[in-house]
Simulated scan of single mutants.
Amino acid sequence: MAKSKKPAASTTPSSPSAAPAWLHDGLPLPRLIVLDLDYTLWPFYSDIHIAPPIRPVPNAHPPTLADRNGEHFALYPDAPHILRLLSSLPPARLRLAVASKSPVGDLCRDVLKQLRLPPPLGDAGGGADKGVKRAIDAFDAGLEIYEGSKIRHFEVLAKRTGIPYGQMLFFDDERPNLEVESLGVTMRLVRDGLTWEELEKGIEQWRVNQGVA
């Protein structure tokens, strides 16, 4: 059954009051976290629910876009803060990438360019405060957005970054994409988008797979 577009959250996106425990507990983190887009980073299908062109909604909190029909689109509530925190970590410690089967890659890039992220949570990530930034800027390891097997997406990411599959953690909402685990990637199957809880569980799952939990 096809998913319908979920309504935009009416509350302010949440962020932890302190740095998450997994950030400073002395245990390793994956070197690359990879995110799906539709129903993982945002609650809609990019190729079905958006009628471009899109534009920012003035003074919207959280940052929101509107399409030509006046429909509103935003990230899942926790996602902007998660992206901002993870992207504040030094690249030598952790990088971010996208792996999506969406057939409208240019539109997805436009969404990511126009959505803004909040300031980081103090200096929780141990990196410099780079100020408010575009969502697309968080993905320093690149965007793989095209139809086909997610295995292909990860082969390209591994070649580009030089990061071994075992050092990758992937968040996706579709069970068939668990096929990437045949490469050695750890995949966290999410139900209602990227949240702080899903992020923590994914990191725990990756650590168990690495034998360090």
Results as ranks from 00 to 15, higher is better:
L86V: 07
N177Q: 05
E200A: 07
P16T: 11
R188V: 00
K101Q: 15
R175F: 15
M1P: 12
V111Q: 06
V208W: 04
G142Q: 06
I54F: 13
A141V: 12
I54D: 01
H72K: 11
W196C: 06
P119H: 14
R175I: 11
G166C: 06
P30S: 11
P20I: 01
Q205Y: 02
H72I: 12
A141W: 05
I151F: 09
F171W: 00
S15C: 12
T186V: 05
L27A: 00
L112N: 02
Y45S: 15
P118V: 10
F44G: 00
N59W: 02
G162K: 03
R84N: 13
I50C: 05
V34S: 13
L96P: 02
L29P: 03
L199Q: 06
V34F: 04
D140C: 11
K159P: 10
L189R: 01
L27H: 00
A51V: 13
I163R: 04
M187P: 00
D78Q: 02
D173G: 03
A158N: 06
S88P: 04
N177I: 02
G202D: 10
C108I: 03
P13L: 08
L199V: 05
P56W: 08
H61C: 15
M187Q: 08
K101I: 12
N59H: 06
G122W: 09
A92P: 05
Q205F: 01
E155V: 14
I203A: 02
D110M: 03
A138M: 02
L35P: 00
G148V: 12
K3Q: 14
R84A: 08
L157S: 03
L29Q: 07
S10G: 14
A9E: 13
Q210L: 12
R207L: 02
L41V: 10
S182H: 08
I136E: 07
I48Q: 12
L32R: 04
L117Q: 02
R95Q: 15
S17Y: 12
D123A: 07
R134S: 11
E198H: 06
R84H: 07
G148I: 10
R109S: 05
H61D: 15
